[in-house]
C-alpha cells in the first residue's frame, strides 16, 4: 500500500459548459500539511467538495483514506473532518451543545466524548465559556471551535477550506500552530488559503488556476525550480511610475509591486543595479534602498500566474 492519504487522478468537474476542475492529479502524503492555493473561483472549493464526497466528479477518481469517493462516499465521510469556509456550527446553540451534537453525530461514545470535549475546549481556549451562545463569540474563537468540532472524532484526514479568512493576524498564527499540532499527531491536513504567505507553512502544495494545477512541490522546490534569476527589492518614492520605466529595460525580466516596494527579477544584476539608480535619478525620484532578496513563495506564484495569463493570451 502507498503511504498516500489522498490520491487524485484526472479529477474533473464540469457545470454545464463551464469546467471548474480540469483533469487534476496530485497525491498527499500521510501526516503532512498540504497547501491548496489559488485565487477565488480557481476550483479549490469544488475540488474539496468532491474529495469530501459532497459532489460527484464528472470524470476521474480520487481515493481519500483509501476509500473511493464515488464508490464509498459514506466511508470517506467517516474518515475525514471538514471545516467549511463559512462558519457552519450552530450559532444559536452553546459551545457545549455544539460539541455534544457533532460528537454524537460522529458516533462518539459518552466516555470518548467527555475526553474530546475537554480537549476541544482546551484547544479553542474556551474553558469557562461552555454555556456561551456560539454566535456571541469573537470570530477567531469561533473558527477554533469549528476546527475542534471538525476533529472531535479523530479523523485521519482533515480538510480546512480557507480556515483563516476573516481572522485577525495574531489569531491566524495560533491557528497555524493548531494545524501543526494536528500534523505532528499524524493527521493529514489539506488546507486551502489565498494568503500566499501561509503557503510557507505547508510541507507540500499545489497552485491551481482556472481548474488546472500550474505548480506542484514543496515551498523550497518551487522557489528553486521557478525563480532562476535574482530579485531586487526597490524602495523608492513613486513605485508605480518607477515600475513603468523599469519594465522597459532589457535586463528587467519581471516586475511586481509588493506593498510600497517594487520587486524586479533581473537577468544581469550588475547592469540592473546601475540602471535602476540611473532611471530613478533621471525621473527625480528618491531611492531609499536597493537590495537583493531571497524570493518568497509570493514571488513564485506571481511569476507563475503571470506566465499562465501570458500563455492564455498567446495560444499555442
Amino acid at each position: 500500500m502507498s503511504n498516500h492519504a489522498i490520491e487524485v487522478e484526472r479529477l474533473t468537474k464540469r457545470f454545464g459548459d463551464f469546467t471548474a476542475v480540469d483533469h487534476i492529479d496530485f497525491a498527499v502524503k500521510e501526516g503532512e500539511i498540504f497547501g491548496f492555493l489559488g485565487a477565488n473561483g480557481a476550483g479549490k472549493s469544488t475540488t474539496i467538495r468532491m474529495l469530501c464526497a459532497l459532489l460527484q466528479p464528472t470524470e476521474g477518481t480520487a481515493r481519500v483514506g483509501g476509500h473511493d469517493i464515488t464508490d464509498a462516499p459514506e466511508k470517506v465521510k467517516e474518515t475525514i473532518g471538514y471545516m467549511s469556509q463559512r462558519f457552519s456550527l450552530y450559532e444559536d446553540l452553546t459551545v457545549e451543545e455544539n460539541i455534544h451534537f457533532f460528537g454524537k453525530v460522529y458516533g462518539l461514545t459518552d466516555v470518548a466524548l467527555r475526553e474530546r470535549k475537554a480537549w476541544a475546549l482546551t484547544m479553542a481556549n474556551l474553558h469557562g465559556r461552555e454555556t456561551s451562545i456560539t454566535g456571541t463569540l469573537p470570530g477567531g474563537w469561533k473558527q477554533r471551535l469549528a476546527l475542534g468540532c471538525a476533529v472531535l472524532h479523530r479523523p485521519r484526514i482533515v480538510f480546512l477550506d480557507e480556515p483563516t479568512s476573516g481572522v485577525d493576524p495574531l489569531m491566524r498564527r495560533t491557528f497555524w500552530e493548531l494545524i501543526n499540532e494536528l500534523s505532528s499527531e499524524g493527521v493529514t491536513v489539506l488546507v486551502t488559503t489565498h494568503f500566499l504567505e501561509e503557503a510557507e507553512y505547508c510541507n507540500d502544495l499545489i497552485l491551481i488556476n482556472a481548474g488546472r494545477i500550474i505548480a506542484n512541490g514543496s515551498p523550497k522546490e518551487l522557489k528553486r525550480d521557478h525563480i532562476k534569476t535574482p530579485i531586487l527589492e526597490v524602495q523608492c518614492s513613486n513605485v508605480i511610475e518607477a515600475m513603468e520605466w523599469i519594465e522597459r529595460e532589457p535586463w528587467a525580466v519581471e516586475t511586481s509591486v509588493f506593498g510600497t516596494n517594487l520587486h524586479v527579477s533581473v537577468s544581469d544584476e550588475k547592469a540592473a543595479r546601475a540602471g535602476i539608480r540611473k532611471i530613478l535619478k533621471a525621473k527625480g525620484m528618491t531611492l531609499s534602498s536597493l537590495d537583493r532578496i531571497t524570493p518568497s513563495l509570493e514571488d513564485v506564484f506571481l511569476y507563475l500566474l503571470d506566465r499562465e495569463s501570458q500563455r492564455e493570451r498567446t495560444p499555442v
Partner: peptide
C-alpha cells in the same frame, strides 16, 4: 441559509 447544513452533509448523517 446559515450554511450549517454543510457541516451536516460532510458528516455520516
Amino acid at each position: 441559509e446559515r450554511n450549517t447544513i454543510e457541516q451536516i452533509v460532510v458528516s455520516p448523517v
